[in-house]
């Protein structure tokens, strides 16, 4: 792995009641990199997202952003520190306009001039949204909604965007578009942590990958190596990696 570490999860153990979800989970997202966290159902992916955003406090272990401990901090503070999110299934504010959705992405910021700057920058990146600013987000197509979700995340002027299954529920055609969008976002200098079930696709654009299985990192490595690894397939058929 190259680059300075931006986000570090250090030996996280988390529980829901008596059930342990994470077992010494450690991972690193370097600056300007795309990292994907692969895992099937109930592997602990969503809890990982919640832990990073401070929505779930781990029993032990630390979340570090640029070396600063943000474990269990209020979400507003974490967002302000530079982590934005594209939630699972996008979760746009469907009854609100595209413009309002974008502004919600900048909710924690108070620097009006800089927000206006980012607003223009984001619309340059996604010119299609400029024509749709007054449209209700819920009335757009799935691909357009994904665009809004990413634009909204960028409005927080993040150093890292966490994406929860960005390709879920999209047609194969759109999946390619979304991967392109992720690459576009990444080129602006933002790191991406992508949680995905769709391993082969995620690894195509990622720099580095982790495979999460029953709350443990079962496998990790440069995306290229993982893509070639036959064990990736077995992992997704639910078999245990030897």
């Amino acid at each position: 792995m190259t680059g300075k570490p931006l986000l570090v999860l250090d030996r996280i153990n988390s529980f829901y009641g008596p059930v342990q979800v994470h077992f010494d989970l450690s991972l690193t997202v370097p600056e300007k990199a795309i990292v994907c966290l692969l895992g099937g159902n109930a592997s602990g992916k969503s809890t990982t997202m919640k832990t990073i955003l401070g929505l779930k406090t781990p029993q032990s272990g630390h979340v570090l952003l640029e070396g600063r401990d943000i474990t269990g901090a209020p979400t507003a503070e974490i967002v302000r520190a530079g982590i934005s999110v594209v939630p699972e299934a996008r979760r746009l504010f469907g009854e609100m306009t595209v413009r309002e959705n974008l502004l919600m992405g900048a909710y924690v910021r108070a620097d009006k001039a800089a927000i206006a700057e980012d607003y223009d920058r984001v619309l340059e990146l996604f010119p299609r949204l400029r024509e749709r600013l007054r449209q209700k987000a819920g009335t757009m197509s799935g691909g357009e909604q994904q665009m809004v979700a990413m634009a909204r995340a960028l409005m927080g002027r993040p150093k890292l965007i966490c994406m929860d299954e960005p390709t879920m529920g999209l047609s194969p055609l759109f999946v390619d578009r979304v991967l392109e969008l992720i690459a576009t976002v990444n080129k602006t200098g933002v790191s991406v942590l992508m949680v995905e079930q769709n391993a082969s696709m995620a690894l195509r654009i990622a720099d580095y990958g982790y495979v999460l299985q029953s709350g443990r990192i079962a496998l990790e490595g440069p995306a290229r190596d993982l893509l070639a690894d036959p064990r990736i397939r077995t992992a997704y058929l639910g078999e245990t990696i030897e």
Partner: peptide
């Protein structure tokens, strides 16, 4: 108003609003 927008956002999707840093 910004707060009003956050109220509407929370009403539509509380979890998503929380992830935007809405208290």
């Amino acid at each position: 108003s910004k707060l009003g927008m956050a109220v509407r956002a929370t009403a539509q999707d509380g979890d998503a609003a929380r992830q935007m840093g809405v208290g």
